[in-house]
Design a protein around this nucleic acid. Structure first.
Length: 141
DNA sequence: GCCAACGTTGGC
DNA sequence: GCCAACGTTGGC
């Protein structure tokens, strides 16, 4: 079981939109970055991820689960780009802001802090637990 | 809205 | 294979 973080601008694809998809899930399309794609290729069914809103509120607002392995991205004919499907699992009752993450020494090594531009990134188990604690959500759905 | 950081592209 | 130019992202 691995942990991840998915970043999205709410104006493009928000947590509300993701939740409306329910258990059907949604493909995480539009990624045009090799590192992000490679991360998606590593994902397994049942892996969990944070849903992070960039640009506007800059916070972790939800938890998602990988529900389809990497497959060709339906929004392009370019074979290089693949994506997984994810479904919303639950809200984070107390959204964890980037600010709070940066202030927490335990989270100083997070990719979110070190490489803010990577849109799909791995999260370490202890980072997962810490953010769940801060967000008031159980680390296991 | 600005700009730094980063990734990608393409000429050589 | 290098590197300059360019485009994009995302924090501020």
């Amino acid at each position: 079981m691995a942990y991840w973080l998915f970043k999205s601008e709410p104006s493009t694809w928000s947590w509300e939109m993701q939740k409306k998809k329910g258990d059907a899930g949604q493909e995480w399309d539009g990624v045009r970055n090799y590192q992000a794609r490679n991360n998606m290729r590593e994902m397994k069914i049942g892996d969990l991820g944070f849903f992070y809103h960039s640009q506007e509120t800059r916070d972790v607002v939800g938890i998602v689960e990988v529900c389809a392995l990497a497959h060709p991205d339906s929004t392009t004919d370019d074979e290089r780009w693949e994506c997984v499907d994810i479904k919303a699992v639950r809200d984070v009752p107390d959204p964890v802001t980037l600010d709070a993450i940066k202030k927490n020494p335990k989270l100083a090594e997070m990719v979110l802090v070190k490489n803010s531009r990577l849109s799909v990134q791995p999260v370490k188990p202890d980072e997962w637990a810490e953010i769940c604690r801060m967000g008031g959500v159980s680390p296991v759905p």
